[in-house]
């Protein structure tokens, strides 16, 4: 989580002149469209249509103005999680043998299924990164609130956004002070105990801080509800974007049905 929120990586937006189409669109619409898009793509299973979906995601990336390389690198990071499934799938699916390794047969069916999963996952994650990942976390919180997400969850998220950095700094300070007194982590009880103290101290400080924050909120008349300020408006470009996306998705579904019937 922290790496998403550290300052240099933090928002995917803010590339000056490159700030383009997507970041000016209504965040609520972007979240809803991402959900619709993800559900549609997951439901597709023809490889040609899925390739089409991936191309559509690439188009989203192109108009979003996000840095190409960096975003694709992040997508590859997600692939790291599913790579083993993809490698093992040909060996575990029954079907026509392709080749065998140590007596285990790899099947064509398995290979197609693995490709299908890889295409689906990458198309969806790319769309999520361009449509939702390009938002400031704060904006996302507001948009979720506007979409009637339970208030408590939104506030939990907002508090996390606000304080994760403070906790991280506290952690870094403690780590530095340990280092300055000659602490070198190793595989021994002293290390485990010291880390235990570190985590314990962070918990204690977090609790104390939460109490001070509550006190500060009470002093400003807090009575159990936080009102969020931001208001969103659908503009013409939102409508255009939604129409284009829906059209593209209909085309994908139509192609899927056509191939299935053929």
């Amino acid at each position: 989580m922290t790496y998403v929120l550290t300052s240099d990586e933090k928002p995917l937006t803010g590339f000056g002149a490159l700030r383009a189409a997507v970041s000016s669109l209504d965040p609520r619409m972007r979240i809803v469209m991402t959900v619709i898009y993800a559900i549609t793509v997951v439901a597709l299973d023809d490889l040609r249509v899925l390739s089409g979906a991936l191309i559509l995601s690439m188009w989203l990336l192109a108009i979003s103005g996000l840095p190409f390389q960096k975003t694709l690198k992040r997508m590859a990071m997600m692939d790291g999680f599913i790579i083993f499934t993809l490698i093992l799938l040909p060996f575990t699916m029954p079907g026509t043998p392709m080749f065998s390794v140590f007596g285990f047969d790899a099947t064509w069916e398995g290979l197609w299924r693995a490709t299908e999963i890889a295409l689906t996952a990458n198309a969806v994650i790319l769309a999520v990164m361009t449509l939702v990942g390009s938002m400031e976390p704060v904006t996302m919180g507001h948009a979720l609130f506007a979409l009637k997400t339970p208030e408590r969850l939104v506030h939990l998220m907002m508090f996390t956004i606000r304080y994760i950095d403070v906790l991280r700094e506290e952690y870094m300070r403690l780590r530095t002070s340990m280092k300055l007194r000659g602490f070198r982590p190793g595989t021994n009880w002293h290390t485990y105990r010291s880390y235990g103290y570190l985590v314990g101290m962070m918990l204690v400080r977090a609790i104390e801080r939460s109490e001070r924050i509550l006190a500060a909120m009470k002093c400003r008349g807090f009575s159990g509800r936080i009102v969020l300020l931001e208001e969103f408006r659908l503009t013409r470009s939102d409508v255009v974007f939604v129409s284009a996306m829906l059209l593209a998705l209909s085309a994908l579904i139509w192609a899927e049905v056509a191939y299935a019937l053929a």
Binding site: V138, M158, R162, A216, M217, L229
Partner: peptide, 14 residues
């Protein structure tokens, strides 16, 4: 401890 809202405007408005 005091600034708990994400943005300055929200915090002042709280």
């Amino acid at each position: 401890d005091q600034l708990f809202c994400p943005t300055v405007a929200e915090d002042v408005a709280f």
